[in-house]
Design a protein around this nucleic acid. Structure first.
Lengths: 196, 196
DNA sequence: GAACAGATGTTAGTGACTAACACTTGAGTC
DNA sequence: GACTCAAGTGTTAGTCACTAACATCTGTTC
């Protein structure tokens, strides 16, 4: 069931993506996005708290957190996070990635939006720590999550910007094994959790 | 020699820090900072491009980049960055840290400022890649730099927020060895490069 | 068709940031 | 001391992201 609000939200997102690609993020005003979607600027801000959130909408947190939590608790934090991310690789390659790539490519070109992606990362980091950390081991898990997510973000930018034909999954795997080289040889079982 | 511009800039920074601590970053306007420093808001923007940059001023990039570049080029990227950061630990504990801690503590409490710190991190990342990467190995070095810097940023936040009595250096060492556990046992020679 | 709630519009702000232009201050020159 | 020149600063008038308060519309339910 698609409610009216969901339809408006989708129109806003689509219009924003088009306009950003045509003229750049900075040059497009919220007014223009709203007008292109046939609504007022107030309606824009009821659906997205800031201009940048129309582009950086990341519903993946719970999946990632669950994948990390599913790894053996006895491992060092960094390896646990790395293996959790690796287990998501097959799932990543199934997802529709065209619009995600458009959004990330725009973000990768604008420094202020890269800061916005960092906010996403911080949220994902919190989700991982809450889902997976052992009592007393929070700091280590937080550090490990931050490190791995930063690595993944880096390759996502490269993926969106360069004309790489490789899949997201392959690049994420490369990022993770850059951080934990030992995982390059040891295959990790795919994560069987629910899709978002 | 202290020029007039430098004095104004220092007054603005000092006034901003005081006001932010008293009433929170959001609640303080640029007008108020400028007034407290005895100048107009335009003068503020001539010294700092944005409100957040008055707080997040990070001159450490070249030192970090040099420390990483000084590590053996044959190592895996992640280990090279990690060892570079570890070599800076003694230097970190020498630096005056009081005002740095004040600034980071304010940033750690405000999500929008954490995004700003991410911008700093991105700049440091570029500096590392440019100084240290081998031809063809850029992507791996970029990923490694992002991962290690994110780990360090995480402990810096913890350091500034909690009443930890431990030194910055000790916490940075802990962050790095969380990312590369193998380095916990192998001591790394101190970096002898110039201070900023 | 009346009532009600969710969705949207209008209006009037605040505050970060920019551009253009005028003014002041200080160091060196004659 | 008046003169010059540039760096530093002020004034003014904007644009745009974002907020608050209140009015209106639209679809659903009874």
């Amino acid at each position: 069931m698609t409610t009216r609000a969901e339809a408006t939200r989708a129109r806003l997102q689509s219009a924003a993506l088009d306009l950003f690609e045509q003229r750049g993020y900075r040059a497009v005003t919220v007014e223009e996005i709203a007008a292109a979607a046939g609504v007022s600027h107030m309606t824009f801000f009821r659906h997205f708290p800031t201009k940048e959130r129309v582009l950086l909408d990341d519903p993946f947190d719970p999946v990632i957190a669950a994948a990390v939590a599913a790894q053996p608790a006895g491992l060092p934090a960094i390896e646990r996070v790395a293996r959790g991310l690796l287990s998501l690789v097959p799932l990543l390659d199934q997802e529709p990635t065209a619009s995600a790539r458009r959004g990330i490519a725009i973000a990768a070109r604008e420094p202020e939006l890269q800061a916005g992606m960092a906010a996403n990362t911080a949220a994902t980091e919190r989700a991982i720590v809450e889902a997976a950390s052992l009592p007393g081991g929070e700091q280590g898990m937080r550090v490990a999550a931050a490190a791995c997510l930063a690595a993944v973000t880096t390759v996502l930018f490269a993926w969106a910007l360069e004309g790489t034909s490789r899949t997201i999954g392959a690049l994420v795997a490369e990022a993770v094994t850059t951080v934990v080289p030992a995982l390059a040889d040891a295959p990790v079982p795919a994560f069987a959790g629910a899709t978002p």
